[in-house]
Write a protein that binds this DNA or RNA. Structure first.
Lengths: 167, 167
DNA sequence: GGTCGAGTTCAAATTTTATTGAACTTTGCT
DNA sequence: AGCAAAGTTCAATAAAATTTGAACTCGACC
């Protein structure tokens, strides 16, 4: 019977818009765009699988956003595609396996950054070696070692996280 | 002897600007503003503690940015303040304890979101109870239970993370 | 009490990021 | 093959986040 959680919404029930809002907050923390939270959120509260056209209509977002949002969610393994209900379109359900979601996020969003970080550390190593002043070089060496230990820990913690969150 | 890693920089050595660049990437992943990475990065490669005025000059950022960046870093426990070198100003060093950094980040950036998420779940509970249709209510109940399990896991994993990353 | 330098605040400007929408490509049907 | 709906792409636009800078507060010193 009530409307408008934060902003005006289209024809969503309060259950739907509040759930969507929950996921919007969630994905923002993870650094993903709002529309991704809206899409996953709506799929999460929907009993029936939805098509891209359904998402565009119910969420009031553009076809472009829906397409890109679905691509990202697919890449993270956050969707189940359902075939056969209708010939032409693809229907989507929210993948409910936390293990899968966490794994996909780590693979798609975290790992690439850690990799490029490692590359930067390699570059830094080369730079340190060129430093003339002995005292400075020693200092930089130490700091760089520390960074490498941090990076290593980061890499090691991911599978742990994955295992702990997986069900 | 070389200059400009990504963009033009002021009077920083290559070691400094590359380290700063490393931390800029790092903090971006964590959802913090670039200037915070610049500040922490410069402190991290500096042997001597630096004042806010030093940061403004070496990084070429505004006093406002420096002030806000330092505030955030202080709130995360990422700084050690050094007194007594000079009367007037405060000098800063990078806190090098990963345990402290991770703890501060969790306390300052993660926990608050989890808390507000929990509140939203409570609201959702109330909404679910009002749903008329029995089948729908059951379905929503289930989903909400799942969200709550996820949230709980999230809360449980933090101390684990902290313990594992702490040294 | 007046002045000076350090540090803070916040509205405005800038930069970055996300969204839109129209043109395009792909797919599947007849 | 020809058509129509589904889905993608990306330059332009809108929205959000960050940075700036000028005005302010605070405290120490004379």
């Amino acid at each position: 019977m009530s409307e408008a959680v934060t902003d005006s919404n289209p024809g969503l029930t309060e259950m739907e818009s509040r759930t969507i809002s929950y996921f919007c907050d969630g994905v923002k923390v993870l650094g993903l765009p709002r529309s991704v939270g809206e899409i996953y959120g709506l799929l999460f509260v929907s009993r029936e699988p939805l098509s891209m056209a359904d998402l565009v209509e119910k969420l009031g977002i553009s076809k472009g956003s829906a397409s890109q949002g679905l691509r990202l969610l697919r890449a993270l393994g956050a969707l189940n595609e359902v075939k056969g209900i209708d010939e032409r379109r693809t229907y989507f359900k929210a993948n409910m396996s936390l293990k899968r979601l966490v794994g996909g996020f780590i693979r798609g969003q975290i790992r690439p950054h850690l990799r490029s970080g490692e590359e930067k550390l390699d570059q830094l190593h080369m730079i340190v070696e060129e430093v003339e002043d002995e005292e400075s070089r020693k200092f930089y060496q130490e700091r760089l070692d520390k960074l490498e230990r941090w990076s290593k820990r980061g890499q090691m913690v991911l599978p742990l996280l994955q295992r702990f969150l997986g069900e």
